[in-house]
Amino acid sequence: MKTLKKRRRVQIILVSAVALVVATGLIGYALQDGINFFRAPSEVMAEPPKPSEVFRIGGLVEEGTLVRGQGEIISFSVTDGGASIPVTYAGVLPDLFEENQGMIGTGSYVDGVFEATEILAKHDETYMPKEVVDALKEQGVYVEPES
């Protein structure tokens, strides 16, 4: 016959394990919409994500594709040298946003167009996000900035 002390210890361990599983599940559920994975344009073309999936895309703003002035909608294409993805954005672009410069956008890929909700651009002349540099190096189009 088990003593009361041993029974109480087993109950505490079981309650702790259940609480840990429930807490882990709740944290995972809460973070589900807050995690945005980075994808290069080549990865998006190779394996298009679901329209409901929010992710980050990055690369260089393709020259000659930046179109402003159609109301609030701005459109351009982002490329990593291997593929080009059209992007639309409604809002104010960062001051340093321009063609042939690095950018990262957050949004969804719907009907062949990346619909951005946020656009980030480089913050000085030499900076480019690590993910963008890696994607450009993988495609063989990355050029080291001059010092």
Rank of each mutant, 00 (worst) to 15 (best):
G34M: 11
E43K: 01
A135F: 08
R56H: 05
H123Y: 15
V10K: 11
K50L: 08
F37I: 03
T65F: 07
A19S: 14
L26C: 10
P129M: 11
Q139N: 14
Q101I: 10
E63R: 12
F76W: 09
A40W: 01
L93C: 04
V110A: 01
K122H: 10
L20Y: 13
V133E: 15
A19W: 03
G105W: 05
M45N: 03
L120R: 07
L93P: 05
T88Q: 04
H123P: 03
G25Q: 00
L136Y: 04
Y127T: 10
A23W: 03
A23K: 04
Y29L: 14
D134N: 12
I104N: 02
A17L: 13
L66A: 09
T117E: 10
K50Y: 02
G69H: 13
G81I: 12
V61A: 08
P49S: 06
S16H: 07
M128T: 13
V22G: 07
V143H: 10
T126R: 06
E115A: 09
G105R: 01
G25M: 08
V44M: 02
E43M: 10
A17F: 13
E43A: 15
G140Q: 07
D95Y: 12
P49T: 06
T126C: 04
V21N: 02
V44Y: 05
Y142F: 12
A83P: 05
V113P: 02
Y142R: 00
G64M: 02
I119C: 07
Q32K: 13
P49R: 03
G34Y: 15
T79S: 14
E63L: 04
Q139S: 15
T106Y: 10
